[in-house]
Amino acid sequence: MDFELDQGVATITINRPERMNAMDGATYQALSEAWIRVRDDGDIRAAVITGAGEKSFTAGADLKSFVGSPGDLSEFWNTQKGQLLNKGLEVHKPVIAAVNGYCMGGGVTLLLATDLRVAASHATFALSEVKRGLLPANGGTQRLLEQLPHPIAMEMLLLGEPIDAETALRWGLINKVVPAEELLETALGYARRLAELPPLAVQACKELAIRARDMDRTSGLRLEETMLRMLKFTDDAAEGIAAFSERRPPAYQGR
């Protein structure tokens, strides 16, 4: 796993190109540590996740390292160990996926936990676990139905057939399709624009949008009003108003 930080943007690269960036136990652990750093490091305002090489974002879990290995049953109840973005770790900073090829199984469930998604024109997407007697865990059976129309989501879940980038775009799974050579710069462009915005407001917007899925409307509106009242008294809100009045670029500090 590679981790780079530049001007408030963290770039996380799954680096197992010899295995199509499939994720074994060590990779999942490193990815968990990367997400925790994104969550906790105040210098990070946005993150980009991608895969090494030009062939694969990630082929998902490295099944040879998991299937047939029962492990210790006590691990089943250790629900906070090795938390991932798509497994319940709360990261309210924006995350952009740069899909540089095959996005299969756990790659799709990771994708579903990101906020903005750019794919190279040769990218391929599939939740093919059902064909191997398994199911797309870490949120695959949960988020897909939230983000896609029911019949389309069920087609992906039950048939496990691959779709190309243009189909993913048409279905609303991704934001944009670009030539491979423009992929990373396009994703970083999103991240840099986000990093220039007031981070408290960005994180509040993301948290409210995510929590709205599990809240009734009255509670959601109440939480929205509470966060807005908090933001009104931040230095960033005062800076935004001052910069607008003085016709200058704002300098947000996240406080």
Rank of each mutant, 00 (worst) to 15 (best):
D2T: 14
F3G: 08
F3L: 15
L5W: 03
D6L: 06
Q7P: 02
V9F: 09
I14H: 10
E18C: 13
E18W: 13
R19A: 06
N21G: 12
D24T: 06
D24R: 14
G25Q: 10
G25W: 04
A26P: 00
Y28D: 04
Q29K: 12
L31K: 07
E33K: 06
W35M: 13
I36W: 09
R39D: 12
G42I: 09
I44G: 09
I44W: 14
A47Q: 07
G51K: 05
G53L: 10
G53D: 00
E54L: 00
S56C: 07
F57C: 01
F57N: 00
T58P: 02
G60M: 04
K64V: 01
G71Q: 12
S74V: 09
F76V: 13
W77V: 11
N78V: 12
T79C: 08
Q80A: 14
L84E: 11
L85G: 03
N86R: 10
K87T: 02
K87R: 09
L89F: 08
V91Q: 02
I96P: 07
A97F: 00
A97G: 00
A97K: 05
A97P: 06
N100Q: 11
G101A: 04
Y102W: 15
M104V: 12
L111N: 04
L111A: 07
A113V: 05
T114I: 02
T114W: 12
T114G: 08
L116W: 04
L116I: 04
R117A: 12
A123K: 01
T124N: 03
F125M: 03
F125I: 03
A126T: 11
A126R: 02
A126H: 10
A126W: 10
K131P: 07
K131Y: 13
N138I: 02
G140Q: 06
L145F: 14
Q147K: 09
P149N: 11
H150A: 05
H150R: 11
H150Y: 06
M154I: 02
M156S: 01
G160Y: 11
P162A: 05
I163C: 05
D164N: 10
A168F: 01
L169P: 00
G172L: 05
G172T: 03
G172F: 03
I174Q: 01
N175C: 03
V177R: 01
V178N: 11
P179C: 07
E181F: 07
E182R: 15
E182L: 14
L183P: 05
T186A: 06
G189M: 07
Y190Q: 10
Y190L: 14
R193N: 11
L197T: 00
P199G: 13
L200A: 06
C205Y: 15
C205W: 08
K206A: 03
E207L: 03
E207Y: 11
M215G: 09
D216L: 07
R217W: 14
T218E: 15
S219P: 10
G220Q: 09
G220A: 11
L221V: 14
E225A: 15
E225G: 05
L231C: 01
K232N: 10
G240V: 05
A242P: 05
A242M: 11
A243H: 00
F244W: 15
S245C: 15
E246Q: 13
P249E: 07
A251R: 13
Y252E: 06
